[in-house]
Computed example of a mutant assay.
Amino acid sequence: METSDAMCIRIEEAMVLGRGTRLLAGAMTVVCMVLVGPSAPSGALFVRSLPVHAVRDVVPNRVMTWNICNPCAKNHVDRAAEIATYAPQVIGLQEACVRDVERIRDYLKSLYGLVYHVEYGMVLRNWGRCGGAPWSPGAFGQAVLSAEPMTDRVNVEYPYGGSEDRGYMAVTTKVGGQSVRVFNTHLAHRRQEAVRADQIGVLAADVARHDRAIVLGDFNAVPDAPELTRIWALAADTDPQCHPSPAGTCKPTTDWHSKFDYIFLRGIAPLKHRVQPTPYSDHHLLQTDLDPT
C-alpha cells in the first residue's frame, strides 16, 4: 500500500497534467490533508510553515549531519521542512532508507524549491526498517544530499559491524565553491567500544588520504571515548570548544544529552556551528558554516 507521503506527491504531480486530472486532484486535497495532518497548516497545502529565520536558498558553505531515526513514526514532510529551514549545501543522513530519502528530496524540491543530488551508502536490506516486499526489502544505511553534483562515490561496509551492519560512504563535491571529500558514517551501537575502534581504523585510513575532508556522522561515542582517538588525530570538531579531554565543552546532540554526532574537519576552518533539537528524531540537527578558503 502506498504511504501518505507518496500519495501526496502523486497528487501534487497530477495537478499539473490537465483540467480533468486537476479536478480529481482537487477532490483528493482533503484526503491528503488528513493523511499529512499537522504538517499542512491552513492555507498552505502540504507545507509546514518555516520559521521567520529560515533561509530561502541553499547556503553554499553550510553542511549538516542528521540521524533521522529509524524506525520512528515521523513523516517526510516534517523532515524536509527541518532541512529546508537551514538549507545546507551538503546533508549527511544516517539510519536512512532509500525510499525515505527519495521522498524527502522530492518534498525539498516541490515544496521549497531546493534541488539536491543524492548518493547512497546502503549496508543492508531490512524489511522491518524500510518496508518493501518480504522477499525484496528496502535498503538501509547512509545518504548524502548535495546541491552540487557528486563524483567518485565509494561505499564501504565495515568488516565488523557489531550488532547491526554498519559502514561509511564518501563522495567528492563542492562546498563554498571548493572541491572537498565528504564522508558519512554510522558506527556500531553503544557498549560496543572495541567494534567502533576497528571501524574508526578503517574510516581513518581513508580520511588520511585527503588534505581536505569533511567527516559527518553518528559515531555513537562521546568525545573522550578512546575509540575516537584516531579520528581526532586527523581532524578537529567543527566546535572549537569541543576536544577529547575533560577541558573540552561539547554540546550534546541527542535527546539523552550525549554528544554522538560530529562534523570533523580536515584542512578546513569552521565559521560557526549550531546544534538544533528537533521533535522528528532522537538526534539533533548539527550544522556548520565553513570558511572555504
Rank of each mutant, 00 (worst) to 15 (best):
S110T: 13
L111E: 11
A208Q: 09
W232A: 07
G131V: 03
R181C: 11
F140R: 09
Y280D: 06
W66V: 05
T238I: 11
P226E: 03
L114Q: 08
Y107L: 11
P240N: 02
P41E: 13
Y262C: 05
D206Q: 13
C32M: 12
G267F: 06
L45Q: 08
V115Q: 12
R274T: 13
I11M: 02
V275N: 06
V175F: 04
A54D: 14
G161V: 10
V180S: 05
R274H: 14
D224E: 13
D57L: 03
D224I: 00
F219G: 05
R48F: 04
P270F: 04
V16E: 15
L271P: 00
L290N: 04
S146V: 07
A208H: 01
P60Y: 01
S281F: 03
R10M: 13
Q94E: 13
A40K: 00
W256N: 14
S110Y: 09
T254G: 00
F46I: 05
G201T: 06
C69G: 08
A14C: 12
P252G: 03
A221L: 03
N70H: 07
E12L: 12
H189Q: 09
V16L: 12
P292Q: 06
I9Y: 07
G217K: 00
P159K: 05
E12I: 13
R10C: 10
D5H: 07
V77I: 15
P60H: 02
P244S: 09
H243C: 04
A25E: 07
F183G: 03
A54H: 09
A80R: 05
G176I: 01
